[in-house]
């Protein structure tokens, strides 16, 4: 667990350093995640086990970690008065449009013949 946590933290620090030094607007956590994905793809089985166990722990408590941010929704007060129509329309119709687009796109691009390959 501790070894896995250390690996996660090291990737986070590397990501944070890259973001700062290159002055990129991308957060360190995301750069760390991308780098660790690439690193994991080069690892065969055993080496990724520690980090896999630690990651499992973190992913299982993700809801706890985002919860304080969600609570903020109930304390927005009048901060966005007059904006709610725009927010509502953007959420409902924006989401409907993007679900429909993704589905049609995938249907057009995914050849049915690949079905067999997938099952192998």
């Amino acid at each position: 667990m501790l070894r896995g946590f250390l690996i996660l933290t090291i990737f986070l620090v590397i990501g944070e350093s890259l973001s700062f030094v290159l002055d990129w607007p991308v957060s360190g956590g995301i750069l760390g995640m991308i780098l660790m994905t690439l690193w994991l793809l080069t690892q065969s089985g055993a080496a990724g086990t520690d980090v896999g166990a630690a990651s499992q722990q973190f992913i299982s408590i993700l809801v706890v970690l985002i919860l304080p941010g969600v609570v903020g929704v109930f304390f927005l007060g009048g901060q966005f008065d007059g904006q709610w129509l725009a927010v509502g329309v953007a959420l409902v119709f924006g989401t409907l449009a993007s679900v429909a687009t993704t589905m049609v796109l995938m249907m057009a691009l995914l050849p049915k013949t690949l079905e067999k390959e997938q099952r192998d």
Partner: peptide, 23 residues
């Protein structure tokens, strides 16, 4: 929120952890 910040700081390593299911 200030107090809960001690928890939410873990979102950093938790984001990195998402590499595992992705990989």
């Amino acid at each position: 929120q200030k107090g809960a910040g001690w928890l939410t700081v873990l979102l950093g390593p938790a984001t990195v952890a998402l590499a595992v299911p992705l990989a």
